[in-house]
């Protein structure tokens, strides 16, 4: 049951840091959050996870605090932080929509969904709007492909989505009640290629 005795090699490069300026309260809280962790146990990712759990991201100003705790340099630490896509260094938007980038979703039309989300919410994938109201987050497939194509919001899965559903969802999020002249299309999903006959009238009228 021997646990690691040797610490990660980069700790040897550690030199003590000057006290860091910043939000004193935040830094104190972060110190407390990671107090029981130790560099010898390789618990840096745990530290990131805990901080992100508490604040929704890892505030940049906490990096020196974590570095001190783990006896490494902020540069080393930033290098590790930057490597992992699920650890974020900017605060999340007020409303975050997570978009699955996986293959099942792709084959079922996720690109169309992405396009309308970007267009209506007014931000690119992996960005927030300037006012921080909306954010789009690219996520990897977690194996809930029976709902493809899907988005997630506040842990809730929404799918399989048609493009029309997605547009309604995005408009609702934006608070744009949209005038709907006709009832919903009912079940036609994105990418379901074959044009369905819409009504007898138009079949006769529109054939030419």
């Amino acid at each position: 049951m021997t646990k690691i005795t040797a610490g990660p090699s980069h700790t040897s490069r550690y030199t003590a840091l000057d006290p860091v300026p910043g939000d004193v309260e935040l830094l104190a809280k972060v110190r407390e959050l990671i107090d029981d962790l130790s560099p010898d146990n390789a618990e840096l990712l745990t530290a990131f996870h805990r901080i992100q759990q508490a604040y929704g991201y890892v505030p940049r100003e906490t990096i020196p605090v974590i570095a001190t705790k783990f006896r490494t340099t902020p540069a080393m630490l930033y290098g590790a932080l930057d490597f992992y896509s699920e650890i974020r260094t900017v605060p999340p938007a007020e409303t975050v929509v997570e978009w699955c980038s996986g293959p099942a979703c792709l084959l079922k039309g996720s690109m169309n969904i992405r396009r309308v989300l970007e267009s209506i919410l007014g931000c690119e994938m992996s960005q927030n709007t300037d006012d921080g109201a909306f954010g789009l987050r690219l996520v990897q497939c977690d194996g809930t492909c029976h709902l493809a194509p899907l988005v997630r919001r506040e842990g809730r899965y929404i799918g399989p989505l048609s493009v029309s559903d997605t547009i309604r969802l995005a408009r609702e999020l934006k608070g744009e009640g949209e005038p709907e002249p006709v009832p919903e299309s009912g079940g036609l999903k994105a990418g379901e290629g074959q044009p369905a006959v819409e009504s007898a009238a138009e079949q006769e009228g529109g054939g030419a």
Binding site: V116, S164, I167, P195, E198, G206
Partner: peptide, 16 residues
């Protein structure tokens, strides 16, 4: 047009 397919979902016969 951003080619999102929503119009064709709504009117699959009319839009191609």
């Amino acid at each position: 047009c951003i080619k999102c397919d929503a119009c064709r979902e709504q009117a699959p016969y009319a839009i191609a």
